[in-house]
Design a binder for these strands. Structure first.
Lengths: 347, 347
DNA sequence: GTGAAAGCGCTAACAT
DNA sequence: ATGTTAGCGCTTTCAC
């Protein structure tokens, strides 16, 4: 039983790794002492500690975290899960999602946490719990609520520590952190109204909770001005590439008159603007357009995009903070972060 | 010694996790049998296996990977490191890098590997080896060679399995996978020449190996047409936001005449195009512009960007394949992937 | 076909 | 101040 074949899977030819016993032997002390020295314990003689530390550093020895975790029953790794659509696989493509990943990486690093990144099939969302069930991570941050409310509730019911970026929904068992989509939608629409636009089209798939909230904000802003939302102007398009162009064409097909547009993502807005230009309807003169997210390229676009900024940096920190609370066995309240209107040339 | 305080760090209130002994007890067998059943061993009775499997599934039990790895001396995790500039922290912002991350996530998932994502200070690149030294990962994929050739060589000399996305350099000890930047530069420049442009500006920081190669390709293409590269037209600008605008202004300041531009990234090209437009030099009529990378938004831009496409999907797979070879103790040859010219409206 | 027991690399109570 | 030893959750040899 003492010989797990030396040629372990994915580990055939490399030389044996250094371990604590080696350092101990070289330093002429026991492994306990090495362990204590490396942990900075007061119990070990200054001179001994120096010697051990020196040795470890010069040999690039680093404690085996797997073994340490096992012994200590601790863990400093957080799972980040990005569901992908089984058909397109295309979710990791949206710049907004990617920016969120960056923000998370920063927030985790700040807390001395590691990030285990996993993509899972959105249809099999329970797979998101696997890294937790197998003890690899203390909990999971999921980016991309999509339409998986029920599956997420099931995970939470199973007591998997999970925080989701997205909208807060009724009867929700899991913890969400998200932008204030209703306020964001109202902000964008309010601005267009203030500029005197009255026929404002809405682009986006309101089956997605976040988009639905943006649409609510849109309706609120209209009603505040005594305008009834016109279903003709509400075009359901997906976030996929092509959605923006498709949305504009659909509006034309309907023969709907419009002088402005609120797109539920910047990508959608950009594609829509391009299509409008092709159709001879210049932005912002003929049609004013506001996007959503404020991805970096929004400012590079022509015309520079007016948009609703999502609080990405704050989002990363908030997601991590909530997850730590959950992993600690506490409850964590869902959170809505403020959004902000960024005015550029497109509206 | 038997009581590592039950309230372990970051693990206070949650209930004890299920483990193999629990399943064994419930199934009325020994842990050996459970282990075998879960591993699908032929040694265990069909009926027993069924019972164990059933039990494990219904309780969402999953083998503790940390313990398993320790015992088996195996590991299925790969480290992915993205260096950041200590000042700006802004490297995870370039859409190209982010797309590469997505591609890597896919390639790793395909191979049943997990991805541990770490950001490290570009000035302390030896920190990139930490996840390897501590046994968390079988090797490291580093995105962002920048100017850290020497530090990377040191890591490789220490026998850290590491694969770097970037350019192949003389006296290189580490393994690189990258696009063929010389060919890419020649492709872009050749196209501009073919369109009759003769005064082609080059935008980019040639201190970066990849950019330097693109510049070499640029020079080659010019010389092939009997044109000597004009230093006046070579503008060193960083990839940071603002670099594109700065580059164009610098050209104007120099009073350099130019009728085309090859920018070493799409972001640079977009910013340059916007600035050119502001200065009354429309693209492509007055100045033809070719970018580099073919990020998704290149096609959304106005005018849609002609650019050199980097083989992102292939890159992810190649990086993973090379890393597996290295981790396996074999050498891995550096690799150059073909690039391709994508013609749109900007040139 | 199944179980007992040793040990993967580490930590910490206990002994000295 | 340091060493001895048991055991974290798992796999596997060896014995039955």
């Amino acid at each position: 039983m003492l010989k797990p074949k030396p040629a372990a899977p994915a580990a055939s030819a490399q030389q044996r790794r250094l371990q604590m016993a080696d350092i101990a032997r070289l330093a002429g002390v026991s492994t306990s002492t090495v362990s204590r020295a490396l942990a900075g314990s007061k119990l070990v003689n200054d001179e001994t500690r120096q010697r051990v530390l020196e040795l470890a550093r010069s040999l690039n020895y680093s404690i085996n975290i797997g073994a340490q975790n096992l012994r200590l029953k601790q863990n400093r790794t957080v799972g980040v899960v990005v569901p992908y659509d089984p058909d397109t696989r295309q979710q990791l493509t949206d710049p907004f999602f990617l920016a969120m990943l960056g923000s998370l990486a920063d927030a985790l690093t700040e807390q001395g946490l590691d990030m285990l990144l996993t993509r899972v099939d959105a249809g099999q969302l329970d797979a998101a719990a696997q890294p937790f069930d197998s003890g690899r991570v203390i909990g999971v941050i999921l980016i991309g609520q999509w339409r998986h409310h029920d599956q997420l509730n099931q995970l939470a019911a199973r007591r998997v520590p999970i925080v989701v970026w997205g909208a807060q929904l009724p009867q929700q068992l899991y913890c969400t952190v998200g932008g204030d989509n209703v306020a964001g939608g109202a902000l964008a629409t309010g601005h267009l109204l203030q500029r005197g636009r009255r026929r404002i089209a809405f682009l986006g798939d309101i089956n997605l909770p976040e988009v639905e909230h943006r649409y609510q904000g849109y309706c609120q802003a209209l009603r505040a001005q005594g305008i009834a939302p016109d279903p003709q102007l509400q075009v359901p398009v997906s976030f996929l590439p092509g959605g923006g162009a498709e949305g504009v064409r659909e509006l034309m097909r309907r023969g709907a008159a419009f002088d402005a547009m609120f797109a539920s993502s910047d990508l959608l807005a950009m594609a829509a603007i391009n299509t409008l230009r092709e159709l001879g309807r210049p932005v912002p003169d003929d049609v004013a357009v506001v996007g959503y997210d404020d991805i970096e390229l929004a400012s590079y676009f022509h015309p520079p995009l007016s948009t609703v900024r999502q609080p990405i940096a704050a989002a990363g920190r908030a997601l991590v903070a909530s997850l730590l609370e959950l992993a600690d066995g506490q409850g964590a309240a869902s959170l809505q972060l403020p959004t902000e209107l960024v005015l550029r040339a497109s509206a």
